[in-house]
Design a binder for these strands. Sequence first.
DNA 1: TTCAAAATCACCCTAAAGTATGAGCCCGGA
DNA 2: TCCGGGCTCATACTTTAGGGTGATTTTGAA
Lengths: 155, 155
Amino acid sequence: MAKNLLAKNKLTILYGLCLAVLLLLLKWLELKLVIVNNAYEVYMGAIAVFFTALGIWLALKLTKPKTVIVEKQVYVNNGPEFTVNQAEVEKMGLSKRELDVLQLMAEGLSNQEISERLFVSLNTIKTHSAKVFEKMEVKRRTQAVEMGKRLCIIP
Amino acid sequence: MAKNLLAKNKLTILYGLCLAVLLLLLKWLELKLVIVNNAYEVYMGAIAVFFTALGIWLALKLTKPKTVIVEKQVYVNNGPEFTVNQAEVEKMGLSKRELDVLQLMAEGLSNQEISERLFVSLNTIKTHSAKVFEKMEVKRRTQAVEMGKRLCIIP
DNA sequence: TTCAAAATCACCCTAAAGTATGAGCCCGGA
DNA sequence: TCCGGGCTCATACTTTAGGGTGATTTTGAA
């Protein structure tokens, strides 16, 4: 959190410095009489372009990359290939998110770790897992994992 | 594809128009003598801010969400007949009783249920499971089960 | 547009799991 | 016989899991 703020401030300061330097440059140019007063539209345009670029850069730097995470499962196996038994999944009415949670459970992650992995809160994972148990008619995560593997819902 | 290009061109044209309008505005202001020559740094700054904002907006509009394909490796070892990997068991120094507990864990039983199944107390199971986790270098039963299956210690 | 399911999150509480430590019993090998 | 490892059990404590309820927001399909 503090780190993030620092980074943001860093950029803001940098931005301010750029502005200041540019203005100084302009002043200097003015003093040097290089700029013809009648034609400052030209470097006005330059400034516009420059700051547009700066804005774009800033936006790209500051915004979290809009990422669409597509989970492509690569099955490294010795034996028959694993295919998700979609029929079983739908029979139980497991949603995509619930399936995600179940998969991470099967990897031995705690609810806390799952929540961090999926960028949601711990409570959300609890809700999902509760629904998973309900739909799978089991009492514990270990049972859910067991059943999930048996029904080929998870590898 | 063509649509995308059109959209981009649209934005570019819009951008150009904005620039033109702004310059016209400036010219007009100049003609109106509203602008004090000595203080154009001020609206230079305004322009800078405006175009930075514009740049940010452009960037946000134009960036496509990045698609990240996460390759998830899943190991499946569906050999038809299961044989206990005794070597791995001994490498970790798991005792017979600890193996029993691990197996029942893998079936999704709670410590209470395991203790009833093995006719020992709950505390005993806790002790065994703690030793299992220690020897397998894992933190949770789910992880122990995961690892146990991967190492062919349990079916 | 509207409606239902999905997804998100919060709070409170109980149950289960896990940690740490200590201790007694039994058995096989030195 | 003594020692160590395995097995048993206990107590006390912390952490995690799970249950129940209610709420808001997103989203997809009708």
